[in-house]
């Protein structure tokens, strides 16, 4: 059972990194700024998922703290950039 879990974790990690690469490529080719911003938000969510997988792989829960910080930062920055795009002023 440990063996299966390890293999699945490595496969899932590879899949998420592949997905992050695809999303970053899509951000590079994005047609307008909001699509690009959505791609960035998606890439940060995928990085969060990668962090959680690494927490499982290393059996160390410090990575989930890092994931909490990343979630907070990515949330605030995405909302700020979206506000800036729509109104050209943030506050």
């Amino acid at each position: 059972m440990e063996r299966i879990l390890d293999i699945t974790l490595w496969v899932v990690l590879g899949l998420h990194l592949l997905m992050a690469l695809i999303v970053v490529w899509r951000v590079w080719r994005g047609e307008n700024s909001v699509a690009r911003l959505m791609g960035l938000d998606l890439a940060s969510t995928l990085t969060l998922a990668v962090l959680v997988i690494v927490a499982m792989l290393r059996q160390n829960s410090i990575y989930i703290d890092v994931a909490i910080a990343l979630a907070a930062l990515s949330y605030i920055s995405t909302v700020a950039i979206a506000k800036f795009i729509s109104d050209h002023k943030v506050f």
Partner: peptide, 29 residues
């Protein structure tokens, strides 16, 4: 992972809180 129950619950709560408002901000932008 050991010792990650409360942190995981906090992160689940935060992600479930953050996702809809990010989608709303993007849609209005």
């Amino acid at each position: 992972t050991p010792l990650s129950a409360w942190k995981g619950l906090l992160l689940i709560f935060f992600v479930l809180l953050a996702a809809p408002s990010v989608s709303h901000a993007l849609a209005s932008a």
